[in-house]
Simulated assay, not measured.
Amino acid sequence: MPLGIAVAAIALGAASITGGLADRDRKNQEAAASQSAAAIPTCEVTDRNSLVPPSGALLGVNLNLEAKPLAQYAADLGHKPAVSVSFADFPYTEQERTHLQQAAAQIRADGHIMLLTLEPKQGLAAVTRDVISDLVKDLGSINSQGVPVIVRLAHEMNGSWYPWSQQPLEYRDMFTRVADAVHTGVPGSAMMWAPNYAGGYPFAGGQFEAKAGSADFAALDTDHDGAITMADDPYAPYYPGDGAVDWVGMSLYHWGAKYPWGENEIPEANKFADQLTGNYVGANGDDTLLPDFYSVYGKDHNKPVAIPETAALYNPTAGGAAEIDIKRTWWEQVFSAQAHAQFPNLKMINWFEWDKNEVEVNGRIDWTTTNSPAIRGAFTTALPDWLHYGTGTTCRPAG
């Protein structure tokens, strides 16, 4: 129940129970309750540009809300996260719509921004005008509760494993249609374009890789040599344009130093920065350098850059390096003063806080930093002062 309504209910209940109160006193109480509610500002979010901090970065989390509520994570972290990641099919079911509203309620109390990852698992053609219209209505509803939304739409589109993969022509059209509707209809929501880190591009052999001879294949063959290889630009053909994109994002993980994954290995020096700038050559089996994602999209296109997900692999059943050494080495890179100075447009960092089975490893991987007291203590101590956190919302919904 919103605070203002609760105050009014308490006042009215008290007047009813104490029936001997004078009518004047009752009216005074009702007026006071009304003024109290009016004094609480409405929650409606109306400016997507205000989501970008002028300096520093938002610290958020990709959390298994069924295993740990956001309130518990905030207590463990010692801060309310500025961003909480949610996933839904697109179009989504009524059950998923309910889950999004439930997630929004948790974020309203113990966070700030929802990063909503929408996955068009039925293919790009399923994103119809009606589907987009329904999304705009739902975003408006969430915004009116005081929760801004950044929509990460059809992420990892340059991979080969999703039904929306490697279809740059249709993808850009779909993204632009959604972005136009969101920008027009929900000023408290923003759009994020987030390709997969391109080490290993074009990820040959995936179910949805571009077919030779297709228009999409021709668009992806940026060096016009008749093949799609790591020599082709793995990002630019998928970019929908500056007008459609508010944020750019790339998830960066430490899976290990070499393939196959599953061994407990210390992250190589400067790995995080090298991945973000295209200079990392480990683990890919190829010395080809990638485009500098940060410079091209963060600086040249002047977009706020997000790391929607990051973490370091720890396999509890394997030997090798210790959990604390692996994870601490990674977060020291992510949160380093060097990274802060080198990447001023880096405006969001979300930790992947899951303990789950990974098909790439065929086993359980613990990516978390708050479940173990020792890891949690080291992680929270390492958080730099340039990070921004959530404050929760104490206002009543608009309308």
Rank of each mutant, 00 (worst) to 15 (best):
N279S: 08
D221E: 08
I150G: 06
P267T: 03
A104N: 04
E119N: 14
M192E: 10
G285V: 00
Y201W: 11
Q166D: 10
P397E: 07
G200D: 07
L290V: 08
L346C: 12
G19S: 15
I150F: 03
T380P: 07
I17W: 10
R48Q: 07
N28A: 15
I365R: 09
T391G: 15
D300A: 12
S251Y: 00
I150W: 03
T42I: 02
G243W: 03
E268N: 10
T18W: 04
P397T: 09
T317N: 13
A311N: 06
D76M: 10
F335C: 02
G19N: 10
W330D: 08
E265V: 10
A257R: 10
A105C: 06
A31P: 01
P163Y: 13
S214P: 00
P54H: 09
G256Y: 01
D246I: 05
G298H: 10
A31S: 13
V136R: 04
L290Q: 11
P308C: 15
S144G: 13
G206V: 05
L313F: 02
K211P: 04
D287V: 11
Q275K: 15
W331E: 08
G4W: 03
R24L: 08
W261Y: 10
Y92Q: 02
G256S: 11
D110G: 05
M348C: 07
K303M: 04
E323N: 07
M192T: 09
V245W: 01
W367I: 12
A39G: 12
A215V: 07
F87H: 10
K211M: 00
D233E: 11
V182Y: 00
N279Q: 09
Y162C: 12
V131P: 00
Q72C: 02
T369R: 13
R396W: 02
D216C: 12
G13T: 14
R108K: 15
L290F: 02
W255Q: 09
P195H: 11
P81R: 06
H340L: 06
A337I: 01
R364M: 08
A212K: 12
I307Q: 03
G320L: 05
R177W: 03
N302H: 15
H99C: 03
G226L: 09
A154G: 14
A378W: 00
T381M: 06
G256R: 14
L21I: 13
R152E: 13
W247Q: 01
G256D: 02
A67T: 05
E353H: 05
Q102V: 04
F217R: 00
A125N: 11
T317K: 14
D23C: 02
P2Y: 05
N28E: 13
D173N: 15
G320F: 01
L276S: 04
D180S: 13
Y297F: 13
V359R: 14
F272R: 01
A311C: 07
W386Y: 14
L252R: 03
T370I: 06
I349E: 09
A231C: 03
D216F: 06
W261D: 08
D225V: 09
D180F: 04
F217D: 00
R24I: 02
V248S: 05
I40E: 02
A322F: 00
P308W: 14
P373F: 03
D216H: 11
M250E: 06
N315L: 01
G226C: 05
V178S: 07
P202H: 04
G241P: 02
I324E: 02
E119D: 12
P384W: 08
A273R: 09
G243F: 00
P260K: 14
P69C: 09
L77M: 12
L383V: 14
G282L: 08
P195N: 12
